[in-house]
């Protein structure tokens, strides 16, 4: 699709890449740093490290980071000329919305790749953990990218409608706090249903943290992924319908 290819081209030299690199590396640094400073050993090796880095990252920074990315990909398109050009071309509202979603999805996937690579690097270089990162965490990394999609769709839609950088980030921040509370207060079903809660739940799979069963089953992974995809489609279609009804500028 032309819109997707065009949006990917806009990512070239984009300032979004700073977020993609800095946020997960900060999570790795603080998780590893706490471990070193507190002097608490990684009793269960890779699993403990994953818990201290990725679960903490998923509780809050992840959804907020996706919100920031959603605002960044829209920023230049809120300016009068670009906004008018975007909708003044023979491109349907759905194509325009899917193009933006694809851009955020690529950034979110890259952010997860940095996070996973960061965990591996810290595990090897700082803690000298034996063997490779357990394979289940690669699968869970893919799941985390998939559950970022509904947040990306929602945040991209909010950015489009609010035509502002800060306002959708504020909403994303509030959503992240809400998702965190749902997990802390152990609202099981609701935390899985809400995009900002689902990102936290996905990062906990296999760790036994909070409401997690501690085991990785195909059923858990598949149901989370399917709901993530379904909610992404729902949000995307709704956003496109709104864009189609709205006046540009």
């Amino acid at each position: 699709m032309g819109s997707v290819r065009a949006e990917l081209l806009k990512l070239k030299r984009s300032s979004s890449w700073a977020v993609v690199v800095a946020l997960p590396l900060a999570a790795v640094a603080s998780g590893a740093g706490n471990t070193v400073l507190a002097g608490e050993p990684l009793t269960d090796g890779w699993h403990t490290l994953w818990m201290r880095v990725v679960v903490v990252y998923g509780l809050f920074p992840l959804a907020t980071g996706v919100a920031v990315l959603g605002s960044l990909v829209w920023r230049a398109d809120h300016r009068g000329g670009n906004r008018n050009a975007l909708m003044g071309r023979p491109v349907s509202a759905l194509e325009a919305v899917v193009g933006k979603l694809a851009a955020v999805a690529v950034l979110a996937a890259a952010m997860q790749a940095v996070l996973t690579a960061g965990v591996v690097a810290a595990g090897k270089a700082v803690f000298g953990l034996p063997g490779p990162l357990p394979g289940q965490y690669l699968l869970i990394s893919v799941l985390i990218v998939v559950v970022c999609l509904p947040v990306a769709a929602l945040q991209s839609g909010l950015s489009m409608l609010m035509e502002s950088f800060a306002a959708p980030v504020a909403v994303g921040l509030a959503g992240s706090v809400g998702g965190l509370l749902l997990v802390l207060l152990r609202f099981d079903a609701v935390s899985l249903a809400v995009p900002y809660g689902l990102t936290a739940r996905a990062t906990q799979v296999g760790t036994g943290a909070f409401m997690d069963a501690g085991t990785v089953t195909v059923g858990t992974l598949a149901s989370m992924a399917v709901w993530a995809l379904v909610s992404t489609v729902l949000v995307t279609v709704a956003t496109a319908a709104l864009l189609d009804r709205r006046d540009a500028g």
Binding site: G81, N82, N84, A85, G88
Partner: peptide, 8 residues
């Protein structure tokens, strides 16, 4: 079209 300010 080119409306309001130039795009880019």
């Amino acid at each position: 079209s080119l409306i309001e300010s130039p795009p880019g």
